[in-house]
Design a protein around this nucleic acid. Sequence first.
DNA 1: CAATGACCATACTGTGTCGTATGGAAAAGC
DNA 2: GCTTTTCCATACGACACAGTATGGTCATTG
Lengths: 211, 211
Amino acid sequence: MENKAVKSTAIPTAIPEAETRPGRTRSPRTQLDPERWVMAAIDVLARDGIAGLRVEVLAKRCGVTKGSFYWHFKDRQALFDAVLAHWKRGRIRDIEKTTAVTPGAERERLNYVIEVYGASRNRKGMEIELAIRDWARHDASAAAIVESVDLYRLECTRKLFVATGMTDAEAKSRSLLLYACVFGLSLMHYNPFDDNLPNLKQRIAERIVAD
Amino acid sequence: MENKAVKSTAIPTAIPEAETRPGRTRSPRTQLDPERWVMAAIDVLARDGIAGLRVEVLAKRCGVTKGSFYWHFKDRQALFDAVLAHWKRGRIRDIEKTTAVTPGAERERLNYVIEVYGASRNRKGMEIELAIRDWARHDASAAAIVESVDLYRLECTRKLFVATGMTDAEAKSRSLLLYACVFGLSLMHYNPFDDNLPNLKQRIAERIVAD
DNA sequence: CAATGACCATACTGTGTCGTATGGAAAAGC
DNA sequence: GCTTTTCCATACGACACAGTATGGTCATTG
C-alpha cells in the first residue's frame, strides 16, 4: 500500500534501450491488441515452426514481457487458435481473389495460380503454409483448419478446370495434382537438378492445365 | 538358466517391468549400440518431429537412462548426424531397388514408384520424410542430405522417363512433377474431396507418366 | 482530483531438458 | 584369481519455458 518512493528513479524521457525495450514502447502509447500478437506469432511460426512459438520469445519480439501476453490470451493454446483462425480467413480471401475469373480466361487463371504459389516473392506465405501443415501432423485443430482450406482451394480450381471443358472427375484430379505439385515443389531441394528451372516449371504447369 | 533368486522374485520367465524399465533391460545382456539408438530416434522423429527428439525421451523409450546415450554419442547433434546418414543410406538403397528395371518396363516401373509412395502401408516412411523435410527448413545439414537424396531420386526417374522416349528436358520436368506430387499429396488433407479417391489418383498417375 | 480499469513489469513456482561428473556392475583380457 | 574396459545409473548444475500472483503506471471518467 505505502508507496516507497518509487523504486524506478529517474529515466525521465531518454530511451534506455532504444529498441525492443520491455520497459516502455517507443511510441508514447503503443498498446498491443490480440491482432498484433497474432501477426508476430505468424512471423515466428514461419521461421521456427510451432515448436518455436513460445510465449516469452514472442513477448520479447513484441518488446514486452509475457505479463502482457497473458492479459490478451488465456494461455498458449488460445494464441494457437487465434493464429489458425486468422490464417484460415486470409487464405479463403486469397483464394477467392486468385480464382475470380471472367468467363473464357479460366486457363490463364489456373496458370496464374501455379505461378503465384511458385513465386519467390511470397516465400513467406509458403513458409507459413509448410509450418502449419507440419503442425497439422500432430495437432487435430490445425489439421481441421488445413483440411477446410484445402477443400476450399480444391473446389475453386475444380470449377476452373470444369469451365475449360473437363469432366468433373478429371477436373478434380487436376485440382489435386495442381496443389500437390505446388506444395511438393516447395518441399524439395532440387536446385542443381537443372540450369534452366523456369523451363522445367513451365513444362510442369502445361502438364497440369493443358488438355 | 538357473533362476538365481535375484531381487526379481518370482516371474521367472515373465518380463519384470513388462516394458521401459531403466534398472535392467529385460534380456540378460541387451547392450545398445549406436544403431539401436538411431532406429529408436527415427521412430521418435516420425512421431514428434525433430523438436520432439529429446535425449531423455529417447532413453526412456530404449529402457535406459541418458547416461547410456552420452556414452554412445558425443551430444545430441551427433545423434542427428547419425540419423541423417542412416536415412540417406536407406533412401539410396530403396531408390536403386525401386527404379531397377528390365528394358521395356520403364513405364510400369514409374507407376510402381508412384504407387509405392502413395501406399498407406508405408505411412511410416512418409512420416519420416516429412519430418526430415521440415527439419531441413531450419537446419543446413539436414537440407544438404535432403538435397542429395532428391537429386538422386530425380536422376533415377529421369532415366526411366528418357527410356520411354522423352526428351531430356521433358523427362526432367516429369521427374520433378512426380516427386512433387507424391510429397505434396501426403502433405494435404483432402479426404472428403471425393468418394472415389483411387480413381483420382489413377488419373493423376497417368497424367504424370503418360505421353 | 480521486477512482476505476486497461495494460504491462516483476517475481515466483514447477517442470522439462542438455550436458557433466562420478560410481557401479558386468564382461573381457591377463 | 585380478585388472581393465565396456556400458549404464545416479546425482547435479544450468537454463528455458508455462503459467500465476501481484503490484505499478498510465489514461479515462465522474
